[in-house]
Design a protein around this nucleic acid. Sequence first.
DNA 1: GTGGTCTAGACCACC
DNA 2: GTGGTCTAGACCACA
Lengths: 127, 127, 127, 127
Amino acid sequence: MHFKEKQAIYIQLAEMITDNILSGRWIEEDKIPSVREMAITMEVNPNTIARTYNYLQDKGIIQNKRGIGYFVSPDGCALAKESRRKKFLKTELPVFFKSMKLLDIDFETVADLYKEYSRKGANNENE
Amino acid sequence: MHFKEKQAIYIQLAEMITDNILSGRWIEEDKIPSVREMAITMEVNPNTIARTYNYLQDKGIIQNKRGIGYFVSPDGCALAKESRRKKFLKTELPVFFKSMKLLDIDFETVADLYKEYSRKGANNENE
Amino acid sequence: MHFKEKQAIYIQLAEMITDNILSGRWIEEDKIPSVREMAITMEVNPNTIARTYNYLQDKGIIQNKRGIGYFVSPDGCALAKESRRKKFLKTELPVFFKSMKLLDIDFETVADLYKEYSRKGANNENE
Amino acid sequence: MHFKEKQAIYIQLAEMITDNILSGRWIEEDKIPSVREMAITMEVNPNTIARTYNYLQDKGIIQNKRGIGYFVSPDGCALAKESRRKKFLKTELPVFFKSMKLLDIDFETVADLYKEYSRKGANNENE
DNA sequence: GTGGTCTAGACCACC
DNA sequence: GTGGTCTAGACCACA
């Protein structure tokens, strides 16, 4: 597994897990892999996974059942979606628009790339 | 001056300077404020500014003339724009589209927000 | 440790490390001494080592693994050799030849000195 | 005029002047351009030229005649040649050989490049 | 334990 | 005046 340098590994892992939940690969009430298991598959120190799970639990996206393991919260998907959505609309979008303006990228270019992206995505859906 | 916590100050300063160059507020061959001067206006340690300037010089965006100061490179604006543009199209855009998909935000929503953003931008141009 | 006055210490350290990699004393994927450790053995400030490592990382010769330390890049030796070789052939060699011409030193003199150098080198190999 | 970043400008100027003397373009007892004149042609602060001339005078390569200007010393060429020759043989050559070894550049490669250099040099002699 | 960043203050060479 | 470098010491996040 390869991680970006500029962001904490535990955050990157949290993002990956959230992606899994949002995309429906992990559904609500599902058990997620144990800390040790995850540590091995991700080739990471177990402490790092522990921190990731802790972080997601704080956000209410996953829950711990003592002695059993971690599970996706009943409303995990909704929570994750809501928090990301807020961040996206309030924070990322303005930055995005500002970049477009600064770099002279017009909206039609983006629209075209989006169409292309959607087309590719449709083909890769089962990947 | 207030800085975000999550990113190194020297990087944030570099971004600000790059913004100034991209937006045309600082044009090519212009002298930029001296290390000490900038340190005072930004309320940071001169070492931090030195780091910023060094970082931008490595990227070729600014240049040093010995004993005189730093200047925007002859092709500084182009370099800055090119590097940002590449990052934007190859890195940020796919992430952006992926987020849209995960969060069920459709393209028209974005288009509407863009129109709104542009309208506001037009009014604030002289800000 | 003694450093030449005319070149920044952090650069001299970078050269030493590059030498170690080129000569095969440190091989690819090897961990290199931690910042603090190196600072002690070299009797310099940790910041100076940090600068050296950062400089080499920018060149792709070494890599950081978060919380673990710095390692010689997978292609560190090749990168180092390539960059030095280019510098040598394009920059140093012409200067060298120009000096020979200006100083009326003919090529055979150099060839003789090279033979002598090689002979000494052979004896000192296990040094 | 463009200068390398890593060496003081006044030193680079001194090297250029020494080259002129060694190559016979400026011969002994010749007057060399005044500080101001030189400063203008080189696009440099007069202080910098003054420092260069001072530096060369310290080495005995040029001499000042009050109110008239600077001249190449009677034995300027010999002095320059001797000092450079010593530096070349004791300092540069060993470094050069060491680089060759480290970079796996064999002597024949250098010999070939030298032949090529000489051929080109012969054609450009009047340049 | 690891490196990353920042401050403070100093000294230097150079223009 | 300019930037470049180094030391000293501190705090932080991360593995």
